[in-house]
Amino acid sequence: MSPILDIRGLSRHFPIHGPFGRQVGAVRALDDVSLQVMPGEILGLVGESGCGKSTLGKTVMGIHRPDGGEIRFDGVDIAALEPRAQRAVRKHLQYSYQDPGASLDPRWKIGRSLHEPLIIHTTLSTEERTRRVADILRAVGLPEGHLDLYPHEISGGQQRRVGLARILTLHPKLVILDEPTSGLDVSVQATVLTLFRELRQAFNLTYMFISHDLAVVRMMCDRVAVMYLGRIVEIGPTDQIFETPRHPYTRSLLAAIPRIGGKRITVDFWLKGEPPDPGNLPSGCRFRTRCPRAEAVCAQEEPALVAIGLQHAACHFASEKPA
């Protein structure tokens, strides 16, 4: 099976400007990132703020322009396409914001917002569009009467559903979900996650699931990629990543999740310090300044992703058994 999304060596740098607009450096938000997404799977993308996971999603979507590398969607390098052709690809590739409700124009009625993608990308007649919109609205569990309302007239949870309906009207193949549960209460989060699953079944979707919440990622995803300061440090099947993490950073992330009923993590949480300034990265491995396992080689050589079974980890000591 060939991947639906194949990212190779993708880089995206944000310039840092000093006084008088002179460029004094760059934040390497994405640095030589490669990953594949298979049709039908849910790939989780986890990491802390500033690790580049959202930049990756937005670069794939064309909101940011890449500084290097390829983004192959269904075999076509979409980063190299001219803008008009790139816009046409968006039909199959959709992006859902942290709060999909915020993606609705406050001055447009719900109905108009739902028709819009079809007007842009299809030549359907008004009746056909109306039928399609009604189908989608039913799929996300909203009454048809909502079509005549403005976004501020419905609840936040319903806005989310409308936002999702909007990206599904075109029947995309891949949906990038960017922090879809951030800021939600657990009881609402549970219903939203269930909705994601149902929609995936109903529309045969592939998800790229960007989140900082490892418990949610563990529940939802088939595979997980862990990012740290613009690089993928570990990638592999969810169960293996959570049971035998190979990279010390992955281990620290897992150690930081509170486990109800288990041992208190605060008693012996070992990761010290905070991530270094992304504009001024340490030499060699980016994690070495906080890593308890760091040795001289880590400062000299940046480790590449190496395979250990189905898992890949970018650590000089990845093949060691975790302590």
Binding site: G157, R218, M219, F242, I260
Partner: peptide, 19 residues
């Protein structure tokens, strides 16, 4: 119900119907 809404490894999650 709140505790049952927490994400679990086995993928079953309940949620609380209503608002």
């Amino acid at each position: 119900k709140l505790l049952a809404s927490l994400p679990r490894h086995d993928g079953e999650v309940a949620g609380i119907p209503g608002e």
